[in-house]
Design a binder for these strands. Structure first.
Lengths: 189, 189
DNA sequence: GTCTATAGATAGATAGAC
DNA sequence: GTCTATCTATCTATAGAC
């Protein structure tokens, strides 16, 4: 592992716990037994660390969505794919998702632009999947934006909950989240 | 409106947009055409402003939950009540919900303790409602914590989405959110 | 590549004049 | 109750010795 990677990994933990703005370069250096000034031999600014973390995961989501779009399968299967890659990432990189959710607005310049572009594209792709599901009568509920919002809000905050329940297996988690998002909770009447 | 209330209302807007840690007392003072020092004639610290905002809304949630618990109605009706007061608050005080979600960890001392206590009590009360619904066969899905998490994550982040869609009437919003959380989205098979 | 020292900006908060 | 002035602490980042 490179020094830069070590810095970024440490930052992931601290940023998640206390928020980007509350973590100083001195805090970060102390954890890896450095002086703050030395960090600058490996990274160019604090914001660069944030951008590395956030844009990396944003690019992963974009990549996964492009694969799903290329599959030519029905809406339900596509939604299952979206849920699957969110759960994967929640398990493997929960810090990055938390930081993306809470601190993306502290990105600057082109980093901020790139992030917003990827986020909006992702949301539009997911909206298209839902629209297609309604057209093909796979989805009964009619308000597209409420479906989109409900799915995304659950998937984006899954990391908060998984922390307390990391005993659950990856497959059980995928199954339960998929069921609840697609089928609801009530006994069918 | 008192001066203190004016300060808090201004803080609500700024804290929501940029996060508690990114807003300085000078930023806050500038908006209401004050000098930063003058703010301290009305509030004792920056953290007190945060606590006023966050604990106020936490107390509201606690109060509403206590009313629901006292009603002696079935689980479905109780869940509808929970959704209703979340939607009400999202429409009437979205800034406070956003700040509670993002910046509660910057509360200090007793403020932090009180917040955590109210949050945990609320979650436990909601878990009891869900458990009761499963016992009485109103709820089919079996994983209590996933139901709890899914409902709360959607309700807690509703403010993000309502911003873009504030054209929707309060009643339509309550109906759609209730439907999607309780009934799911797929065509019944 | 890590250090000490420090520049330069900005933070929360207080003292005291008016 | 609002101001100017300022204290003390802390921030990101750089300069230059080793």
């Amino acid at each position: 592992m490179t020094r830069k990677q070590e810095i970024i990994d440490t930052a992931k933990t601290l940023f998640r716990e206390r928020g980007y703005k509350s973590v100083s370069m001195r805090d970060l250096a102390k954890v890896i037994d450095f002086k703050a000034a030395s960090l600058y031999n490996h990274i160019s600014s604090k914001e660069e660390i944030l951008a590395d973390i956030v844009l990396d995961v944003a690019r992963y989501f974009t990549h996964e969505m492009n694969i799903i779009k290329s599959l030519n399968v029905d809406a339900k299967t596509q939604l299952e794919g979206v849920i699957k890659h969110h759960v994967d990432l929640t398990i493997n990189n929960p810090e990055a998702i938390a930081i993306l959710n809470n601190d993306w607005m502290h990105l600057e310049g082109k980093h901020l632009e790139d992030f917003k572009m990827m986020r909006d594209t992702y949301e539009n792709d997911l909206r298209s999947i839902i629209t297609q599901g309604i057209e093909h009568k796979e989805i009964a509920f009619q308000n597209i934006d409420i479906i989109l919002f409900s799915i995304l809000s659950t998937l984006r905050t899954l990391h908060l909950w998984y922390r307390k329940r990391s005993d659950l297996s990856e497959n059980d988690l995928k199954k339960d989240i998929t069921d609840i998002l697609l089928k609801g909770i009530l006994v069918k009447s």
